[in-house]
Design a protein around this nucleic acid. Structure first.
Lengths: 335, 335
DNA sequence: CTGAAAGCGCTAACAT
DNA sequence: ATGTTAGCGCTTTCAG
């Protein structure tokens, strides 16, 4: 096995306490012994054992992050922000793919608890009672990203979905669109579903347009396939619209894809607007006009809040991040 | 603090050894005591401390994964595969974003070493001498994904890039294309650069076409921007081509994007082929014909190899995964 | 400035 | 079947 603090102490002819002080830069040693010990550390290739340290310090320099899925642009951009800040703070991040499965989530929570992580970030997940129970048993900071809990007091960082959705639809209306369908994703989703539909309806009403339930397409999820399916629906029903607003970029892209394949030109025949502003939106052809959530910054912010809570011991207040309309090429100006 | 094994022992009126046996299902206890202890565990909400365990067992149930960047489809699909298998094996995965930075990589290696991870997977990175030095000091399994080291004996899982590239270009030629440019990405990259260029040239030669260096566009990296820039180059030079083969999907998409914006129709005026088969390829409009690397499976395989090495103690052999031409919509049949 | 010794929470002999 | 005890590698009083 690799060298331990004992080996170093022996090699340098000092006590392990002295070595420990030097490693941790705690006062109480002379420059000479320091050099001696440093040399020994070098010579032996000593590396402190983080487990032993964590056991005593109650501080593992590790945080856990839960995602419903890791392989999509949304998750990876948020993760990127979290990782960046954690790294700056000298912490590692354990990724957990819950696959939106309750048991799997609980199991992960259990593991993170046993590993004594310093904090937990939960992305895009609704907090069920069992989760909260497990979560609150571990007395560590936690923060939600792109999610919110109405029942439980967990700070979150998200955009105002209702408002963002309102802005998007309002933008569309500002461009002269009045017949706007919405691809709502999973409309039972309390975070990404409901508020965005509300925003859509509110924007319509604010502009004197009475929303129709027929114009809201409900899907299983927020993925590309769902978008394709939704557009198929729209076309099958021969819906009379000039624009469609989707609850996610993937949804929008899937919809565009189906439409274009069937001879509908975007934006000439149909305007499309997405939600999220993942990298996909700008890579698309035509590039997708969408409402941006600052994904990377949200990850960064969540991590910042987590570490702030860790050091202050207090619960920090939630943050509503600014959304922004990213004007690109998929919305036609009708005026 | 949370309950320890001692608390459980006291509560159940047994010794900690007995509790330990029961937790770990090691023989040597009666059903009655088992129930008693289980009840106490329940009552106290006891959770074994993974740090203390790891300290003794020399087994942390944690692996580390290094990526040059986390926020792209390539990385996230590989990660997804790794996470899946690790989870099945009861391990957690720590993600490390090296940002292609030597110091940062070394620092991460150091951290993973101190945390005593059970193994390390390195994705899409060239192994520098300093990395190998750090890596070999930790006596744990490591495997490379989509990379290879010629100098050092680290098992890898990748596709045969030269062959895959050959197949792609050969496919293009089979469709009647003879004037084919290549967007090579970073052509100094020993893994994703050089072999793919070689494959391109070999395919050309095998079909009696003499490759021209002018037709190979060198970029900084493999991203979307690089693709846009490359196509700008191609168009500025008024290159006489019917098809372009790119070293990554993002490159291909960027190129398509620029071309289409400038009135070039894909595939009518220009055929485009990518490399990787990330989800981006199928979401693109028109969907991108590309050579597929089984990203998720590669992650899964790498993790499998890692755990196999861990349990067998032996170094396992590398795997060349099958690539596959994904015929979609961006290649025109000229015949 | 330095060392001895007591744990952190757990596992694994070694008793009984 | 169960308990005692010695560590795992480290930090931290408490002495000197």
């Amino acid at each position: 096995m690799s060298a331990t603090i004992k080996d170093v102490a022996k090699h340098a002819n000092v006590s392990i306490a002295t070595v420990s002080r030097i490693i941790n830069k705690k006062p109480g040693f002379s420059p000479e012994t320091e050099q001696k010990v440093l040399d020994s550390i070098q010579a032996l290739g000593y590396q402190p054992n983080a487990l032993a340290r964590g056991l005593i310090n109650k501080d593992t320099q590790t945080i856990g992050v839960l995602f419903p899925a890791v392989s999509n642009m949304f998750a990876s951009e948020v993760l990127s922000g979290i990782e960046e800040y954690a790294n700056e703070m000298g912490s590692s991040v354990i990724v957990c793919n819950t696959a939106e499965d309750g048991e799997r989530t609980l199991k992960y929570l259990q593991v993170l608890s046993e590993k004594r992580v310093d904090g937990i970030i939960i992305v895009s997940e609704y907090i069920k009672e069992e989760y909260y129970k497990a979560l609150s048993e571990m007395k560590i900071p936690k923060v939600l990203v792109s999610s919110i809990s109405f029942e439980y007091p967990i700070p979150y960082v998200k955009v105002d979905d209702r408002h963002a959705s309102f802005s998007a639809v309002n933008y569309l209306i500002g461009k002269g669109h009045r017949k706007i369908a919405m691809i709502a994703g999973n409309s039972t989703d309390p975070i990404a579903g409901v508020p965005r539909i509300e925003g859509y309806m509110a924007a319509l009403r604010a502009n004197g347009i009475e929303p129709s339930n027929d114009m809201i397409i409900h899907c299983d999820g927020f993925g590309h396939k769902d978008g394709v399916q939704a557009m198929k629906d729209i076309m099958d029903r021969d819906m009379d619209i000039t624009a469609v607003f989707a609850s996610s970029d993937e949804l929008a892209v899937g919809a565009m894809s189906h439409a274009i394949r069937h001879g509908i030109r975007v934006p000439d025949d149909l305007s499309v607007m997405g939600y999220d502003d993942t990298k996909l939106a700008e890579m698309m052809i035509p590039s997708l006009t969408t409402v941006a959530q600052p994904l990377y910054e949200m990850g960064l912010m969540a991590a910042t809040m987590l570490f702030d809570m860790k050091s202050s011991g207090a619960v920090i207040e939630s943050r509503i991040m600014n959304h922004k309309i990213m004007e690109r090429e998929t919305v036609k100006n009708l005026l």
